[in-house]
Computed example of a mutant assay.
Amino acid sequence: MRQTAVITGSTRGLGRGLAEELARRGYQVVVSAQGEEDSVRAAAEVSPDALGVPCDVSDADQVQRLWDRAVARFGAVDLWVNNAGLALTGQPLATLPPEDFRTMLSINLIGAMQGCQVALRGMTAQATGGRAGRIYTVLGAGADGQPVPGMTGYATTKRALQFLTHSLAQETAGGPVRIGAISPGLVMTEGFLREHRRMVAGPERAARERWVNVIGDHVSTIAHWACDIFASRHEQGAEFVWLSAEKIAARQRDEPGRDILSRYLRDEDGSPATGTQEGATA
């Protein structure tokens, strides 16, 4: 029996990479983003039998509709990934426009909470027929509680998602639904590149690029790692961190010439190279 995966925010970026990797592993995939045209187009590109469903995760009714359409097409949902996220960064909280903070809260936090709620109810119900499921949430900068300059708004939502994961795992302990979270580090997506383009050329940007070449990773690398986790057995509420301090130190020691950015930047203004896969960073 083929399994079915729903990934929110999956027309671009890491979500798109997860959808493609899961399809390669034999999953029936539901691709979703706010726009219907984008969702349908991306689904067709991911797999001939993938389903594209538009969904604004900040709208509870749309999240429920996403679940309902996935079940109507494939019979059940085995894996739900709360990936949809938006990073509006580069400013301290004092100058962050209130609408930016509200938008990040609505998508990053409320969207994930609604995804967990809908998926948990549906998976608990389908477990009576012997088919339960797994729910994973994608974390990001700030989830570990460490302040991130210029990212207080975004990082606050990701810290809250870590708490959500741990609390939901406690609530569902002993039940049929597995809860987990992944922290993918810095992934080369359009979301990151968009923020990077805001920086003017100079010493600060050069220093940032040197650091990105140490800690950055391609979408395909992280997607493969994450999908291995989705298929694993682990403790309820487990959080998996890709970019550990040990990994960073090893790269600095063993890969002094590591270069990630040149694949994505075509010139000194930071524009993405032709054909670069774009998407929202989580």
Rank of each mutant, 00 (worst) to 15 (best):
L193H: 00
M199T: 07
V219W: 07
T189C: 14
G185N: 06
K158H: 07
G175H: 14
R178F: 00
R197K: 13
L186T: 10
P176V: 08
K158V: 09
L168I: 03
W211H: 09
S167E: 13
I215T: 08
V214W: 15
H218S: 10
W211A: 11
E195Q: 08
V177A: 01
K158F: 13
R208Y: 08
E190M: 12
T165L: 00
D228K: 10
S183G: 09
W211S: 12
I229D: 02
K158M: 09
R208I: 08
G216K: 04
W225A: 00
V219S: 04
R198M: 02
Q170K: 14
E209D: 15
A223W: 01
V187G: 06
P203M: 04
V212N: 11
E209K: 13
E171W: 11
V212C: 13
I182R: 04
D217N: 07
G202I: 13
K158C: 02
R178C: 01
T165K: 06
H218F: 10
R194F: 03
A173W: 09
C227G: 05
I222A: 04
V214L: 11
I222H: 09
G185S: 03
E204C: 01
V212W: 07
A223E: 02
G180K: 04
F230E: 00
K158S: 02
I222K: 05
A173T: 07
R178N: 02
G175K: 00
T157S: 11
S232L: 01
P203Q: 10
A160W: 15
A173G: 00
T189K: 11
I182M: 12
E195I: 03
S220F: 12
V187S: 03
M188F: 02
R194I: 12
I229E: 01
L186F: 14
R197T: 11
T172Q: 14
H166G: 12
T189Y: 14
A223K: 05
V214P: 11
Q170H: 08
R198L: 06
T165Y: 05
S220G: 15
I182Y: 00
D217W: 14
V200K: 15
L161A: 08
L161T: 09
L161R: 00
D228V: 15
I222V: 15
G180V: 02
R159L: 11
T189E: 08
A226S: 02
A201G: 12
S183H: 15
M188C: 15
F163P: 02
A201Y: 05
W211Q: 04
G185C: 15
H196F: 13
V212T: 01
F192Y: 09
H224A: 09
M199A: 06
A160S: 08
F192D: 00
A181N: 11
V200F: 11
R208P: 00
A169Y: 03
G175P: 00
G216N: 03
A206V: 06
V212M: 05
L168Y: 03
E195S: 01
H196E: 02
P203T: 10
A206E: 14
Q162P: 02
E209I: 00
H166I: 01
G174R: 04
V214Q: 03
N213C: 15
L164P: 10
R159H: 13
R208C: 12
G202L: 05
S167F: 06
